[in-house]
Design a protein around this nucleic acid. Structure first.
Lengths: 167, 167
DNA sequence: ATAAACTTTCAATAATTATTGAAAGTTTAA
DNA sequence: TTAAACTTTCAATAATTATTGAAAGTTTAT
């Protein structure tokens, strides 16, 4: 496999993966492109490489910046804007995990909590609803707390203590 | 909030959540309905409750069975089939995690591995591609291993040892 | 102040994904 | 073996989501 082929494969794989953890294809592909680029890219560069329109590029770059994983960089002597992505995978994972928690998990925890707190009228179906949403509420809450804690560990938590403890 | 409202809220919340961890709305809603139901439901029951067509119900029940979180149960004296879902949240989480790992994470790990193994031609861009896909490969691999290990712990790993160790 | 260089917005359109419903298929009872 | 009860399949259609491109907006250089 040559460079160009490998690069395309990486971008398309990362792109389709993206769609299943909640971000769209173009957004994931742009991030992938920046991730393996040796220098910041302009909007022009991105459009060219990925064959997507200016509007699409603009919108998705903004989203990536909202997520906090892409930043504008100023290239001296250049008028246009250049973009780069977080290059450290650990930090990347941390940012993504935190953002997903805030956007998706936290709201669900809130709703589950509301539902599990309805008044018990004594009927079997109400008891079941309360019991099951309570269980789901606790699981979600605990899993969210855990993942955040894991991701906040600075250096490689994986190969260090945590992982070993679970052997 | 009364029972009916709470129930509808639960089903719709779970339904929209579903779409962002890779299963479709109808599938997630059927699972949610079964999850809070006190007894197995027939296809008729599901169609009626969720106002979806027979075909849709049939297809999504099959998918849920493929995932291993819904099972057919025979109700004596009844001709038609009844369905029920895994009621233990921990076991549910385990099955979902395992299945996602198998369907989504493992294939990505494989591709990242392939890409990170291309021949280094000495150019800067090739070096960067190799370096970054290698980093991503390791992270994904480790995270996948960890989540599987966590999920395989039988009883409540969360409130017990693992969680405490990360304080 | 003007215009060129560049970016953003958003209505229109395209692409993708989910849903329907009816025909075909299967199972069971008699 | 027939037919009623039930389930599955799948082409057509609807709903949703992503993308385009051109007009409007902004910034910078002169």
């Amino acid at each position: 496999m040559k460079y160009q082929e490998a690069k395309e494969k990486f971008i398309s794989t990362w792109g389709s993966l993206g769609s299943l953890w909640g971000i769209n294809k173009a957004m994931a592909q742009i991030q992938a492109l920046l991730f393996i680029s040796t220098k910041p890219l302009s909007m022009e560069d991105v459009m060219e490489e990925l064959k997507i329109s200016r509007g699409n590029t603009s919108m998705n770059l903004r989203q990536l910046m909202d997520w906090g994983i892409v930043t504008k960089v100023l290239v001296s002597g250049e008028r246009k804007e250049f973009f780069t992505t977080e290059k450290d995978v650990q930090e990347l994972a941390r940012v993504i995990a935190k953002e997903r928690s805030r956007r998706e998990i936290k709201p669900v925890i809130k709703v589950l909590n509301e539902i599990s707190s309805i008044k018990d009228d004594g009927s079997e179906k109400t008891k079941e609803l309360i019991k099951q949403t309570k269980a789901l509420h606790n699981l979600t809450k605990d899993a969210d707390a855990m993942i955040n804690k894991l991701m906040d560990q600075k250096q490689n938590w994986l190969t260090k203590s945590v992982f070993k403890l679970m052997k």
